[in-house]
Nucleic acid binder design. Structure first.
Length: 258
DNA sequence: ATGGTAGCGCTGCTA
């Protein structure tokens, strides 16, 4: 089974690129973030034309997450259920079971600047995610928590740690929140098979960052042990960041043995 | 080169 995560930065602006990528990469399950659409405007028929079922959780203008699958979409859930959401009203989580694996697709809040209200609520959102996970799933389940985490787990996951001094995405509390998720029973599937530096999934549109190699690895797939033992390969599709109207993120693809 | 990009939606916010 081939699974992928991709922050598309507006599905309206990116639909032609997403359709082309699906046709070429042929994922079984693609989880996307930042659709920036209402549910009413989600182009489900574009995906059914390619042989995929899709479920979407959106609000319009900002955020929005979707799961696109050709191996079924069952038991769909959105948001944190009964738990209070520090970003109430923002569409940042959708979960579904596809091909026997539970997928939890997240768009973690950016946090803007350290020690602001947004940053504090980002940490609370991640703590809530851990609590929600613990109350709705077990580490022995085949599960993938994937998406745009807006946290670079290690110094080598940014192009220059010095350039990030005092900024969000690399602070100890943010990294501790990701570690806490992993402590529950998750492992970074990409790092399991690729230990190299300079592996990035996001490059800011500004300053020509992509062409200068100034990126960050903030999109990943955290998997439980039953999925980890099936991981065959993990790649970042940098080509998807090139060409006409690219997203500022590249897709991350993980191949699982059957 | 002391500014640069992109998307949303129409003024300035978000990333």
């Amino acid at each position: 089974m081939r699974i992928a995560t991709w922050n598309v930065n507006s599905l309206k602006a990116r639909l032609p690129r997403v359709e082309a990528w699906i046709a070429e990469a042929a994922p079984d399950v693609l989880c996307i973030q930042e659709t920036k659409l209402t549910d009413a405007k989600f182009p489900a028929e574009a995906f059914s034309a390619l042989g995929y079922e899709a479920v979407h959780h959106g609000q319009g203008q900002w955020n929005g997450v979707a799961i696109i699958s050709r191996v079924g979409v069952d038991d769909v859930a959105t948001g944190f259920g009964a738990l209070p959401d520090p970003y109430e009203g923002e569409a940042r989580l959708i979960a579904a079971t596809c091909g026997g694996v539970r997928f939890v697709d997240v768009y973690v809040p950016n946090g803007r600047e350290v020690d602001t209200d947004h940053y504090v609520r980002k940490l609370e959102w991640l703590a809530t995610l851990r609590e929600w996970l613990q109350s709705t799933a077990a580490p022995g389940d085949p599960l993938v928590l994937l998406g745009d985490f807006n946290v670079a787990p290690e110094d080598r996951d940014v192009w220059s740690i010095d350039a990030f001094a005092g900024l969000t995405h690399v602070t100890d509390p943010e990294r501790a929140a990701i570690s806490s998720l992993c402590d529950w029973g998750l492992t970074d599937a990409f790092r399991r098979v690729d230990d190299a530096d300079g592996r990035f999934t996001f490059w800011d549109y500004r300053n020509g960052d992509f062409h200068k190699g100034r990126g960050m690895r903030i999109d990943y797939l955290l998997v439980t042990d039953p999925v980890l033992e099936r991981v065959e390969s993990a790649t970042i599709d940098r080509d998807a960041r090139k060409g006409e109207k690219p997203s500022d993120h590249a897709p991350v693809v993980v191949e699982l043995r059957d």
